[in-house]
Design a protein around this nucleic acid. Structure first.
Length: 571
DNA sequence: GCCGTTTTCGGCCCGACTGTTTTCAGTCG
């Protein structure tokens, strides 16, 4: 089993953690963390890069030393530096440091003075009251830790759609307290990440403390974690944490930039400011004590000699270099979409009739909609066999005769069987305008078998699009084991397309894989997989992720007019 | 440990809040 990027990243994170606890050079541990992030989001597998003879020290944040260490990990499945650190500092110090209020310094103190090596050791120390003997620990620390130890930790992230519902209600509550109604959610929410850990709310207001009171009094608040003159932190009933920051008007742009992040993007921007002898923080851009910018984001980016970077791109994945070169992409928007290529009706597990779905598509201004009901294998969804599908095609013909301004394309979401064969015979597939081929069972196949399965499906020339290629359900089911690089390469070779499923529970391909597909020259279909007329509205979540993957209209097939789309679908 | 028209050494983002302290270290984002 080749070493996965995630494993290397995890080893580096653990190394960084232990180095911090040990009190080593903090910049050394930061280097390990930076490298972990770079490796984690790398679209290609490190093992493959090494096989291809690539020089890993070309990667940002990875120098000669780490490149050598990575090669060692790939060869041995072990990281000697980490192994040594673990021998030196045995126990679950990483888990202990993850507890709220505990960082490397205090973990070291607990380790040295009380011999705390495991969570159980810590529990005993808290119970015995010995914790308070330590300088820096008091009654409150003890209570907080006791509470944290009592409940399981699992850090929860919320789906973007869930966070959106919370955010909209919260903004409505806060808006009356804001100057000119200026209150927004920044952070990963504004960057439109597929999941959100907390809501970073930014508000312009004269009295920050009063604004904080307003938040603390929100019906949905379960507990108040902090409440100061400019920052208030609460946890909502759902467990979603909300950080409210109140800033003056002249700092709004700087604060918006700062709290939108990402952290890595901000650090790079600050580097640009430092290069010019300036300082950038959440209050503005400063030359010495003099403020030279801060009211708007546009102004700040301009002062740093780059174009405004869309929030979805602010991940420090090379967007700053692109902006410096004046080569930022014109990201796709909802308005570019001309149709939906994955839609269900009540012929299978959808709730609306074909005519109702078509009317909803037309109401959105679409020129086309592909009806893609399930094939027979998905019995639970009343999947269609060849006979029923043939009858459905006749109904679509009759409907198209009546429709004006919208064309219903004949399609199917055909199951990819375990061996890569399709769930409907070629004879009926050949009568369709497009075939979405998807995996709906046997998720547990080996990486090799699953990859071959999907590539075999693409060998069938009727297959136009691979539906929800990774199979993940956010927060519920991990993606199945798959060599996505190989799938993308095969898609390019076959002239096949990959789906970016816009269902907020799926968002599949994700942003990184969508970017890899674009880079490889594979065009995507952004489709909702709508099972009701309301489902069409999910398109915007797909657009969000497409933008995070730097996709432009030309990278997406359902931005094309119908005639050109049809040509592309036949291969 | 990385990085470089301030380049092979000496920097490395920066501020708010808490708890414990009596002027600040540690944590957090």
């Amino acid at each position: 089993m080749p070493v996965q990027n995630a494993e290397i990243a995890e080893m580096f994170d653990q190394t960084a953690e232990l180095l911090e606890i040990k009190g080593d050079n903090p910049f050394r541990s930061r280097a390990y963390r930076n490298a972990a992030r770079v490796i984690e989001r790398l679209p290609k597998s490190i093992t493959n890069l090494l096989k291809a003879g690539e020089d890993l020290s070309e990667l940002p944040g990875i120098g000669k030393d780490l490149a050598g260490k990575i090669a060692g990990i790939v060869a041995t499945h072990h990281f000697d530096v980490l192994d040594r650190l673990k021998r030196e500092l045995p126990g679950d110090l990483g888990e202990i440091a993850a507890l709220p209020g505990l960082g490397p310094k205090r973990v070291k103190l607990l380790y040295d003075k009380l011999g705390v090596r495991t969570l159980e050791d810590l529990r005993r120390a808290v119970r015995s009251g010995r914790l308070r003997e330590l300088s820096g620990f008091g009654e409150k620390s003890e209570k907080k830790l006791a509470a944290a130890l009592a409940k399981p930790q699992a850090e929860k992230r919320f789906k973007l759609s869930e966070a959106e519902a919370e955010a909209e209600a919260l903004l409505q509550h806060l808006r009356p307290s804001a100057t000119d109604g200026q209150v927004v959610v920044a952070g990963s929410y504004r960057r439109r990440r597929d999941t959100v850990g907390d809501l970073d709310v930014l508000m312009i207001a004269g009295d920050g403390s009063a604004a904080g009171d307003k938040l603390a009094k929100y019906d949905n608040v379960a507990s108040v974690l902090a409440h100061g003159p400019t920052r208030t932190t609460v946890v909502l009933g759902s467990g979603l944490q909300v950080d409210l920051r109140v800033v003056p008007k002249e700092s709004y742009g700087a604060a918006l930039m700062y709290f939108t992040g990402s952290k890595a993007h901000n650090i790079s921007l600050r580097g640009l400011a430092n290069d010019r002898g300036w300082k950038l923080n959440e209050y503005g851009l400063f030359a010495g004590k003099r403020r030279i910018g801060g009211a708007t984001e546009e102004e700040l980016y301009r002062k740093l000699d780059i174009a405004m970077i869309p929030p979805e791109m602010r991940e420090d994945r090379g967007e700053i270099a692109l902006a410096q070169a004046g080569k930022l992409p014109r990201l796709i928007t909802l308005a570019d979409i001309r149709g939906d290529l994955h839609v269900h009706s009540n012929w299978s597990d959808g709730r609306a009739t074909i005519a109702e779905m078509a009317a909803a598509a037309k109401a959105r201004g679409y020129a086309y909609m592909a009806l893609t009901d399930h094939s027979r294998h998905v019995t639970i969804a009343h999947g269609l066999d060849a006979g029923r599908l043939a009858r459905q095609l006749d109904e679509i013909d009759r409907l198209n005769d009546k429709l004006d301004g919208l064309t219903v394309l004949k399609g199917a979401e055909v199951d990819i069987l375990a061996d890569g064969k399709l769930d409907l015979p070629d004879k009926i597939l050949s009568r369709l305008d497009l075939v979405v081929a998807s995996v709906h069972y046997k998720f547990e196949l080996s990486r090799k078998a699953q990859t071959e399965r999907i590539i075999t499906a693409m060998d069938n020339r009727h297959v136009s699009i691979i539906g929800h290629p990774s199979g993940r359900l956010i927060g519920e089911r991990e993606a199945y084991e798959l060599d996505m690089e190989a799938v993308i390469a095969a898609a390019r070779g076959h002239g096949c397309h990959l789906e970016l499923n816009a269902d907020p529970d799926r968002l599949d391909l994700n942003d990184i894989n969508a970017h890899s597909a674009k880079a490889a020259g594979v065009k995507l279909a952004i489709s909702t997989d709508a099972h009701s007329t309301a489902g069409f509205a999910n398109m915007r979540f797909g657009i969000d992720q497409a933008r995070r993957g730097w996709l432009e209209p030309a990278d997406v097939i359902n931005t094309l007019p119908l005639a050109r789309l049809k040509k592309l679908l036949k291969r």
